[in-house]
């Protein structure tokens, strides 16, 4: 059963940012969203995940659909006494994790490097029960080695979990095996 259907969809707040889009997302599928700056990639992702209403057109989501949403700039306050383990527990992530993630468990999140935190955040979302992963520029702060690690984690996600991936990195999108939708400014 299709998870999500967009018809003549345009995202935007006060004006449409992109030309009308028609697409569907099936279970297990990866859909890449790319386009020039200002084409509304992030706004489209927020529209697809129901955080803001469509500017025009429609989005139909399968009832009971659960999202795992990564913001373009994940929140990492410097005044919270949270270890990486606390951080994962907040999302209900299982205690078992790969060695490179488990090695971060005892560190405070505000003392991780940008790349370490990004990978921790992505792992948390990948492990969260959800039907669609919505990732906004997931390669931010990641060096080539960690981008490879992210691709591994994405490939190992639970069967049936779809992914919506916004990225300016065409090579990364290609390596995810995504069907790529290029946004045209309206």
């Amino acid at each position: 059963m299709t998870l999500l259907v967009a018809r003549q969809l345009q995202a935007g707040h006060e004006r449409a940012l992109c030309a009308p889009l028609d697409f569907e997302l099936a279970p297990g599928e990866t859909l890449g969203l790319r386009g020039p700056n200002g084409a509304g990639k992030t706004t489209l992702l927020r529209t697809l995940t129901g955080q803001i209403p469509p500017f025009a057109g429609s989005v139909t989501r399968r009832p009971g659909l659960r999202f795992a949403v990564q913001a373009q700039h994940p929140h990492r306050p410097r005044d919270l006494p949270l270890s990486a383990r606390d951080y994962l527990a907040l999302l209900g992530t299982p205690a078992e994790a790969p060695a490179d993630i488990a090695a971060l468990f005892s560190k405070r999140i505000d003392r991780l490097s940008g790349g370490q935190f990004q990978l921790l955040h992505l792992w948390a979302l990948l492990s969260t029960p959800g039907d669609i992963l919505a990732l906004d520029e997931p390669t931010n702060n990641l060096d080539p080695q960690r981008i490879d690690r992210l691709l591994e984690l994405l490939a190992q996600r639970r069967p049936g979990v779809a992914a919506l991936v916004v990225s300016h990195d065409a090579d990364f999108l290609e390596r995810t095996g995504a069907r790529v939708l290029t946004l045209e400014p309206s």
Binding site: G50, Q51, V69
Partner: peptide, 17 residues
């Protein structure tokens, strides 16, 4: 848990209502 999730994962919380 509720207060920290709201601060750290507002987009995730909003998307899942």
């Amino acid at each position: 848990r509720a207060l920290l999730r709201a601060r750290l994962f507002p987009e995730h919380e909003q998307a899942n209502g």
